[in-house]
Structures are given as structure tokens and as C-alpha cells.
Write a protein that binds this DNA or RNA. Sequence first.
DNA 1: GCAAATTAATGATTTATTCAAG
DNA 2: CTTGAATAAATCATTAATTTGC
Lengths: 197, 197
Amino acid sequence: MEEGMSGFCIKASSVRGTGTTSTTSGTGTKCGRWNPTSEQVKVLTDLFKSGLRTPSTDQIQKISTQLSFYGKIESKNVFYWFQNHKARERQKRRKVSIDDHDHHKDFVILREERISSPKRYAEIYHHHDDHNDHDDGQVLEPERVIETLQLFPLNSVGVSESEKLRYECKDTSAFPYTFETEMNHPPLDLRLSFFTS
Amino acid sequence: MEEGMSGFCIKASSVRGTGTTSTTSGTGTKCGRWNPTSEQVKVLTDLFKSGLRTPSTDQIQKISTQLSFYGKIESKNVFYWFQNHKARERQKRRKVSIDDHDHHKDFVILREERISSPKRYAEIYHHHDDHNDHDDGQVLEPERVIETLQLFPLNSVGVSESEKLRYECKDTSAFPYTFETEMNHPPLDLRLSFFTS
DNA sequence: GCAAATTAATGATTTATTCAAG
DNA sequence: CTTGAATAAATCATTAATTTGC
């Protein structure tokens, strides 16, 4: 599978070039990957800052054409650049906002009383209300295993073998809050956690 | 953030009485809205990924019961979570398309082994025949120049012709990085350089 | 100063989702 | 329920920075 790049470097736009290409190394037009000039990066960044995130074909074409003025470039490079930049910006943002860890605890106070359901919810589900306010852990009425399976059909448990092992461990302990550093994987195997029977 | 959140916390306040001040701001954060733990979100997300969209009453009941193991939760929270998540996923998709001025994607990435050409993307021009059957008058872009403006809305256009001359010089010299300590403004005026047609 | 070795950035691919037609 | 379009996430791979020893 991991075949090494069939030589598509051949296509390497020899058109532009004259060994100009990029950057210091002097290694001229390597068939390798695009190496943007600072002007190109500047323009792309400006466009991104202006709100452009996933340019259309036409836009890519135009951008590419314009940027070719500053050096070798292909439209796919523009395409990829926006993909990567968008993804990595988001990623960066995500990392920053990972500190929000103090949920719960505060509001765990005394709001156990049943709140009259909002209209819509009540309309649809007036038949039953929440009775799961008991936080004493095991409270599950044995019902029908089958439904549980329906409910968590596939990998919803997102647990690999290792997780299952962890589940075994957690089995006895009352509270598995021993979760790892982050949100590694909640120790929860819903497939059979219901019915102790 | 905005989070419309009908203020059903008010109803709850009738019982709680702990300074139900309901947090002036209207955000109602303090009034005790559900604040899911990462484990809860994980499970819900997994369920969603597994294909669950609108859980039935029973399912909600069970999910809620399970998730109460990780923290405070009510069945209505589960109900709303699914509703919101579904809606926002859809919304997100829509928004991305529109927000990016992303009218029509003729841009596809040919992947896999199918294509003889190297594994990269290829452009496909749908060549949509302009049905100008805009029933509501303003369908979309009047193409042409306007699109260019859309494309470079802000300051990315702040350039003069002189810069272009500079490019000429660069042609021979390895790199014109010399100018402008950093990259003050890339010599580029995209506004009208495009459409020769 | 300079290169080999190592690390950090980032370009390019692959994989897994999502919604929506059919 | 299946499939197509279009990502976004995750991953791979290569180039640039940098460190290090000489």
C-alpha cells in the first residue's frame, strides 16, 4: 500500500522555472513539493484573513494564476494550502480552548426536582419524564437487552481492546472517574453495562 | 455562545430558590443548564456517529440513565442535544458552502487507484449551461468583476504597478526578498488582472 | 563556518464523516 | 438503504530550521 509516490514529479511544471524556484538551498526546480514564496504566502494569508476558506474552482484558478507571477505554482497547491491552513488554524484554536475542564460540580447542586419540560419536549415526550436524577450509580431497571443493543449498535462504544480491559478494571470500582488525563476514552461499555442480571 | 435556549430555567427556579437571580445576562449559564462532561459528549457523539439521529423516548431514557453515571443529566438534555447537534451539523454544512462564496464545486479530487494520472486532484468543468431562470431575482453572483472583488475583498489589493516592475528584476536575480524588510505588501493587484474576456 | 543529525513546519495523501439524491 | 459529493480529520512525507560536533 505504501507505494512510494509514483513519479508524478515528472509533471513538475517545467514551464516556469529556469531554475528560479524557491529559496536558498539553490537546489533548483526539484520535482518535489511546492515551496511557496513569501509573497505567495502573504497573499494566501490575506485571502484567508479576508474570510476565504474553501475557494471554488474558479477562485483557485484565479488565485493560482495570480500567484504564478511570484513563482512556480499550480492550482492544486492553492487548493491544498487552504485545506491545510484552515485545518491547522482550527486545530490551533482547539488546542487553546482545551482548558475548559471545570464542568459539572458547580451546578450539581440541588436541582434535582423535575423541571416541567419545555413545551416542545413535553409535547412529544410528556409521557415520561426524567427519573434519572439519582446519582447513586446503579439504578437501572433491567429491561430488555435487545434494546440496548439497538441503542448502541456499533462501535459507539469506541472502545478498543485496551479500553475493554480498562472496563474490566473499572467493573468493581464504584466510580470510574479515574479517567486518564484528558478525555482519553470514557470507560464505558454500554453494550452490557445496563443489566447486572 | 448565543444559544437561544428558551428560558426554561425559570420554571426550575420555582423550586430552587438559591438566589435564582438567573444571571442577568440572559445567557442563563448560572441558572443551571446542563453542562455535559467530556465523557457524556463522547458517548453522545459516538451515538450520533453510529447513526442515531432522533432517539425514541425509550432510547433517550436509557441514554440519559447511562450518562447520569458521568454527571448530572436529564433526559431532556439528551433530547435537545440530538436535536441541536443534528441541526447544527446541517447548518454547518450549509454555512460552509455559502460563507465561502462557494457556488459550484467543479473541483473534485480524483483519488484512489482508478485514475491513471497521479494521485492528485483534477479539475472538472461541469460547464453548467447558464440557466438564468432566476425566479427570485437575485440568485447569486453576477460573476465577472464582482467575483474578483469577492475574492480579494480587503487589503490584499493594496499594490501599485511599481511592484510589478520589481518582479521583472526578480526574474533574473535569485530572489527579490530584499525589498521591504518583511513583506509589507505583495505586489499584486488582483482586482482587474483577471478577466480578459 | 560547515554539514550531518535532529527537530519543527507544512505540503500532499489517505481515510472517515456528513448531508442529500435516487 | 445505498451511493455521490464534498469536505475535514488524520496521516504521511519532504522541506526548512535548528542543533551539534568538528
